[in-house]
Structure formats: C-alpha cells, structure tokens
C-alpha cells in the first residue's frame, strides 16, 4: 500500500513522549522565522539594539559625570560598568518580549497563522517551543550585539562576563515563555498594554541604575520578587566576577519561569485550538 511521506514521518513518533502535543518540528518553525525575517522591517530589530545603547550613553556618561564611581559590596566600580550589565539583561528581556507578545498576538488573532500550523501534523508544544525559540534567538542576538559594545569600552570587569551571554539566553527564554503564555490569554491589542504597564516600572525599579538597597524594606521585598531583578543580579554578578551561590538561585528563578510559561502556553494553545 502507498503511504504518503507525511504519514510515514508522523508515524515515526508514535509511542514517544508527548506524541499528542509534540512532533519535533521546532527547526521548521525557526525556518519560518528566518524566511519571514528576511523580508521584515529591520527598524524593529535595530531599535531593540539601539535602545540599551542610548541608555548607556545618556545615563552611563551623563550621570557617570556626576557620579564617577559606585560601591557594590566592598568594591568600587565605574558607574557605567554598574549599569551596563543591567542594560544587557534588559535588552535580552525586550527582544524576547517583543516576539512573544506583539508578534504572537498578531499571529494568533489577526493572521490566524497558528490555526494553519496546527492543522498539520505538528502539535501545540511544537508551536510554543518554536515561537519561544525564535524569541530566544532575538534575545541572544541583542545580548551579543550589546556585549560587542560594552566589552571594548572596558565595562565588563571579569572574564566571567562571557557567561553573561548564555545567561541572557536563559533570561530571554524565561521572559519569552511567560510572555507567550500571558499573550495567549489576551483578547485585544489594548490588553497587551498591560504587559507594558508591568515592564516599564519593573525596568525602572529593578536596580538598573542604582542598587535597590536605597529603597525601604517593603519595596526591596517587592522588587526582589520581580524577574528582571534576578536577571540583572545574575548578569551583573557575572560581569563583575562576583561568583556565588546567589547566582545559581537567580538562574533557578528563570528555570522555574520557563517551565511554568511552557506549561501554560501549551495548555492554552490546546484549549484554543483543540476545543
């Protein structure tokens, strides 16, 4: 009997873990990302990179003139070297968030692209991982580009700073998986603004520009719950070479975020498309 190739491919996965929701098609989804990217507007990509550079210039060299050094623990460092790791973490976050919220919302509700994808032999977990994977790539490339700016400027104090790149990927992964999960519940463009209303204060208060120890206790406590605080502490610890167990706990925070985000995204995509 003639068996179509698509069927033979799908049958290979029978009996494997998660066969109902996952078909191993993440590379194909990334391929779609690259094809779409080739003809997309580069402005959005560039702005995601330029933004942290502008912050670095204006704050690092503006405030840095008034406040040449800052004391972290027992060490005194340049002000620009204090904020650079925070901006790196933030740019990884921004890259991941852009793809997993705005772009996902459009594909979900406007172009209905996921409906088409899920009519194939892919499953919702393929779509979730593929989209998050793409967001992660963007976070990774922003981090690399920003690193290429700050390292030559002498703003990375330690060789441990190299690990800031994989850390940025972890951070992007966490934000992307949660961003996609949250977006899958959004009904309108206006609701997407809620995400921004959360992101901006988080960026301003998470110790990007000064240590959070200046805050009263209750605010420090709140800020310490925020993901970006952990992202910044992780990247800053690596860039300054302050290696300790705390870094591991920051990383763990993101592992948990990734898992929770993935579970909710897959559940939600299942509910949306398999109802």
């Amino acid at each position: 009997m003639f068996i179509p190739m698509a069927v033979a491919i799908a049958e290979k996965r029978v009996g494997k873990l998660g066969e109902r929701v996952y078909s191993g098609r993440v590379p194909q989804l990334l391929e779609r990302g690259f094809i779409a990217f080739k003809s997309s507007t580069y402005m959005i990509v560039i702005s995601g990179f330029v933004e942290p550079v502008l912050y670095l210039l204006s704050f690092g060299y503006g405030i840095g003139k008034l406040l040449p050094t800052i004391t972290v623990g027992s060490e005194t460092i340049k002000y620009a070297a204090f904020i650079a790791p925070a901006l790196l973490a933030t740019s990884a976050m921004n890259g991941a968030i852009y793809d997993s919220t705005m772009n996902v919302f459009f594909k979900l509700n406007h172009d209905r692209i996921y409906h088409g994808m899920l009519a194939t032999s892919m499953g919702p977990l393929d779509v979730a991982l593929g989209e998050i994977g793409w967001a992660l790539l963007r976070g990774f490339s922003y981090a690399c580009a920003f690193m290429a700016v700050i390292a030559p400027l002498g703003l990375v104090e330690s060789v441990w700073g190299l690990l800031a790149i994989p850390a940025a990927v972890l951070i992007a992964f966490g934000f992307a998986s949660c961003g996609m999960a949250v977006t899958s519940y959004m009904k309108s463009f206006q609701q997407l603004e809620i995400i921004n209303m959360f992101l901006l204060p988080m960026f301003l208060f998470s110790g990007s520009f000064y240590p959070i120890t200046v805050f009263p206790q209750w605010l420090q406590f709140t800020v310490n719950l925020m993901p970006l605080t952990h992202a910044i502490n992780l990247v800053r610890g690596l860039c300054l070479g302050h290696i300790n167990m705390a870094l591991l706990s920051h990383a763990l925070y993101f592992v948990v975020m990734i898992i929770i985000g993935l579970i909710f995204t897959t559940k939600r995509l299942n509910a949306l498309f398999m109802k």
Partner: peptide, 27 residues
Amino acid sequence: LHGPQIRAHLGVVPQQDNLDMQLSVAE
C-alpha cells in the same frame, strides 16, 4: 489519541483563510 498522525493524512482548507501574510506565495 492520534492527532498528529491523523492530521498527516489530511489536507485542510478552513472556512477563513489563514495564509501566512509575512511570506510570499511560494514560501
């Protein structure tokens, strides 16, 4: 129980077009 395997047999033309607007016809 066998969503992906069954969908591999099917070609689906939905009521509402859901073509990929970011890509060309051939893509």
